[in-house]
């Protein structure tokens, strides 16, 4: 029953994205949406409506920070690549994820990979992320601070 309720908004999103309201497209959309629901089988989750605005603000903040990080990251790596001397000081730095849930750890690993010259290559049971850095001389404090800020925002979004 809950799945049937989800069918309607998903179909509306499909119709909006394809911007084609013919009957044939409607049938195709219905097939796609049914397929998605059969594959994913979402379970009913309690929505905390009161937290929704703050979660939305946190999400927007997170997206802006991520976009800024991505731009800085792109420029920094581009400068290293185009420099004739190739000034790489690579190394592996351990960063604790400080997250209880598996989803939180996965998301913070994802966020770290998107930030300047960092790439998570290994993890251990405690959730410590071993990160390959293009510039390993950068102070550890900066990395930890950025990680803490991201974790706070992610917790606001997903709690």
């Amino acid at each position: 029953m809950y799945n049937l309720l989800l069918l309607v908004p998903l179909l509306l999103v499909y119709l909006e994205l394809s911007s084609n309201f013919e009957l044939s497209n409607l049938i195709v959309g219905l097939l796609i949406v049914t397929g998605i629901l059969l594959l994913v089988r979402p379970r009913r989750r309690l929505m905390a409506w009161r937290r929704l605005p703050s979660a939305f603000i946190a999400l927007m903040k997170y997206v802006v920070i991520l976009a800024y990080d991505l731009i800085i990251s792109g420029i920094q790596v581009a400068r290293i690549v185009l420099d004739p001397a190739l000034p790489i000081k690579q190394g592996i730095v351990a960063i604790p994820s400080e997250s209880e849930s598996e989803l939180g750890t996965a998301l913070s690993a994802h966020a770290i990979t998107l930030t300047p010259g960092e790439l998570v290559i290994e993890m251990d049971e405690q959730g410590v992320m071993y990160t390959n850095c293009l510039d390993a001389t950068k102070s550890e404090k900066y990395v930890a601070e950025a990680q803490k800020m991201r974790m706070d925002l992610l917790e606001k979004i997903f709690s």
Partner: peptide, 9 residues
Amino acid sequence: RQGADRDDL
């Protein structure tokens, strides 16, 4: 790795 300065792992 080429020229690793530091390796916590």
